[in-house]
Design a protein around this nucleic acid. Structure first.
Lengths: 215, 215
DNA sequence: CAAAGTTAATCAAACGATTGATTAACCATT
DNA sequence: AATGGTTAATCAATCGTTTGATTAACTTTG
């Protein structure tokens, strides 16, 4: 009939990612996941070993094609630090809004106390993002482009925080903005450009101070 | 021996709030909660009816003495809109950082798909905060104090987002800032003043635009 | 080509463990 | 003795996982 399973393993990962995002890792049962995916329960363990193995597989699929996007931005010597910030924000928002469910899963995983290899991997991945962005900011300060008293860590927290507020609390965001912020079309046409525009005005106002630092 | 139960019900709520914050609602078992609280499992159902009843009780305890704090700020006619923003940020950060665990519980609850009376209550409570802050911002725009193209919803998302990033992803925040952001002393002496200072610089730079709007 | 052997994929059924909740007996204070 | 608090024991339900059997496709052998 339809495309009829390009790859069943990948299909399971898609469904599981969505279910984990909606119900949380502990709230999502293997029966619900396998049911939604239309596969037998045993297939989850057959492919991924365990429920946690399924989560790890979700994580690794997203991180495999991940670092190539950001890495290049910091290197370009011709652009100003502010331009790099703009490029980074662009790339970051693109990636975040296109991996909606995955972002929710990651954030939920960071919110709960959990040990094991996965927890470390998640932290490591996020910190890679943090460091990349912070480096751009520090360069801007050194070049005198940004204010010397710029709180780089808080700027990073601002970018990540706005994202988590819009992505991880979609019900609040939808009520606030007046439309469904989960809908793919709304995200591309309304939400993404708006956040992009706002973030650049906000960061430009904060970062590009004109010689007077205090008061 | 010790103070020996000022109020056992309240003690259970304290412990449950902490456990829910650490493990999530679904990840925290009633046995773990009762064990940590040092009470029999049946006591949870005796006092609160059910596990969800326990969560509701946690929620209602925090919201009972809640609205009196913010309500007064918006009314003062003598202060400027910017001063109101400063006061609101002060009050908000105080409340948020002092109810660390509760904030995590609320945010985790917003992240998962859940129906029932509690979900609506949570949304209603958060929206009350949103509207209160947004009103201040709108007044500032009307008075010409803030830029006409100010994106008030995004400003709200910024405040809430930074909070959720620092409170709900404490592991990332701790690594970024270089100290334990869960420690009460660090929160009061380091984190809170830093966030407060940053937020005011950030919002001042964005909100108080000097006559030139675009470019 | 055909028969035998091998493999991965899939399934229904069941496993032991844990979940939230309930019971009935017990203790304490009045 | 009666009330409200407390307990250990137990409940049915659900959890993640495992099992043994079956299917289908491919490889090897004669």
């Amino acid at each position: 009939m339809e495309k009829e399973k390009i790859d069943k393993r990948d299909h399971i990962l898609d469904v599981a990612e969505r279910i984990f995002a909606e119900y949380g890792f502990d709230g999502a049962s293997t029966r619900l996941i396998s049911g939604e995916a239309g596969v037998n329960m045993a297939m989850l363990n057959y492919y991924f070993g365990s429920k946690e193995g399924l989560l790890i597989a979700i994580f690794e699929r997203r991180t495999s094609t991940f670092h190539s996007l950001i890495r290049d931005i910091g290197k370009n010597e011709n652009t100003s630090s502010w331009q790099k910030v703009e490029e980074y924000v662009n790339a970051y928002l693109d990636r975040v809004f296109n991996n909606n469910c995955f972002q929710k899963v990651i954030h939920q995983e960071m919110a709960v106390k959990r040990t094991g290899e996965l927890a470390d991997k998640v932290i490591q991945m996020i910190m890679q993002n943090v460091l990349e962005f912070r480096k751009i900011l520090h360069e801007g300060i050194e070049k005198g482009e940004f204010g010397k008293d710029t709180d780089t860590d808080m700027v990073v927290a601002t970018l990540f925080g706005i994202k988590s507020q819009l992505v991880n609390a979609p019900q609040i965001a939808s009520i606030m903005l007046g439309y469904d912020t989960q809908d793919a079309q709304n995200i591309d046409e309304k939400l993404k450009p708006r956040v992009n525009n706002y973030l650049k005005k906000l960061l430009k106002a904060y970062l590009l101070v004109e010689n007077d630092n205090d008061h």
